[in-house]
């Protein structure tokens, strides 16, 4: 009898266990590239838990998801390639030719073209995913970094960290149509959902510039002030704009905070404390949560956007760099 109970409870535990796994698969997963570990951490966003890590190429940094979410494209900088990762098997299935030292990556809205910045060679490389061929390489400034494609797919912009510029490039002709100076060491670039604005962060300049895309003129420039943090340590890096166009979130690097901005009034509304040297940001699918990668503390902070509160801190690998969220199936 006793033995039976034991078996029953074991069976129950197994069933519950199976159930938990099925549930986990149905939940949102976040993928974080760990620059110094050559791995990707897989986080279950419902449980706020790292499920596992899998190996990728050397010095993994920027990553982006395919439109259907089945595939990730990852800059393996020291492997000099963009790796194609099947997210169902969590294995690297192939490479795209990227030129040397790719750092960041952006996908054209048509899902067929990838842009990557070659940090050591001052180039922007354009890659056709289908044929796995480089279409062209475009000269840009020293240490190209932030990349963004306009929602209509007509423009790609790249920032260059040591040249302090935003380069505006026509996606059809590959012509560099304009160069705009911004604050020192520009890092991230993000188009607004309507394509009318471009937001660019400058890490050492400590500024965030908002461009009018039509005129390519700066219409607003933010500086940030956090009490108790020297202004030189407030260094804007990752930028995310909410889908509804109301709110912007900016990672402030070694200030260990993110800023929340009301887009309509251009007011900085709040600062939230996250992990150390906060780098990149990503929303979950319904934009109820924002994830931050914190390079020095080696963790990911999860922010509840409605409550404007950091709810979880999840330990990942060494120097987490990029983060993407894959929706529930």
């Amino acid at each position: 009898m006793k033995k039976n109970t034991f078996n029953m409870s074991l069976l129950l535990a197994m069933l519950l266990g199976c159930n938990a796994i099925t549930q986990a698969q149905a939940e949102e997963l976040a993928y974080v590239s760990n620059e110094k570990d050559n791995t990707i951490s897989v986080i279950n966003l419902a449980q706020h838990k790292v499920l596992r890590e899998f190996d990728v190429g050397q010095r993994p940094r920027g990553l982006v998801l395919s439109h259907d979410g089945s595939t990730a494209y990852l800059c393996a900088s020291d492997s000099d390639s963009i790796q194609i990762i099947d997210l169902v098997d969590e294995t690297v299935t192939g490479d795209l030719p990227s030129g040397e030292d790719p750092e960041t990556i952006a996908l054209h809205p048509d899902g067929k073209i990838i842009y990557t910045s070659n940090e050591d060679d001052a180039l922007l490389t354009v890659i056709d995913i289908g044929s796995r061929q480089v279409i062209t390489q475009i000269d840009v400034g020293v240490e190209p970094e932030g990349l963004a494609v306009s929602p209509d797919g007509k423009l790609v912009v790249v920032t260059s960290e040591t040249t302090n510029m935003v380069h505006w490039i026509d996606t059809e002709t590959y012509e560099n149509i304009d160069n705009s100076l911004v604050g020192a060491r520009p890092r991230s670039a993000k188009f607004s959902q309507d394509g009318k604005q471009l937001w660019v962060s400058s890490e050492i300049g400590g500024t965030l510039s908002v461009f009018d895309v039509n005129t390519r003129q700066v219409i607003h420039e933010f500086t940030f002030a956090i009490s108790g943090v020297h202004r030189d340590k407030v260094q804007p890096v990752g930028v995310e704009l909410s889908r509804d166009g109301t709110t912007a979130f900016v990672a402030l690097g070694p200030a260990n905070h993110i800023a929340i901005i009301d887009v309509a009034s251009m007011d900085i509304e709040e600062y939230l404390l996250v992990g150390r040297r906060v780098w990149q940001l990503a929303f979950n699918q319904d934009q109820s949560k924002l994830l931050t990668t914190n390079g020095v503390s080696g963790d990911v902070s999860v922010i509840d956007i409605a409550k404007r509160k950091v709810t979880h801190s999840i330990k990942v690998g060494r120097y987490p760099w990029g983060v993407v969220v894959r929706g529930a199936k």
């Binding site: 000099d80 030719p97 030129g99 180039l123 490389t125 061929q133 480089v134 062209t136 390489q137 475009i138 000269d139 590959y174």
Partner: peptide, 16 residues
């Protein structure tokens, strides 16, 4: 692939 990309790069920079 590297050779091709280098070749393209040379051409592009010449055009530029």
């Amino acid at each position: 692939n590297k050779e091709i990309s280098q070749l393209i790069r040379c051409k592009i920079s010449a055009i530029k």
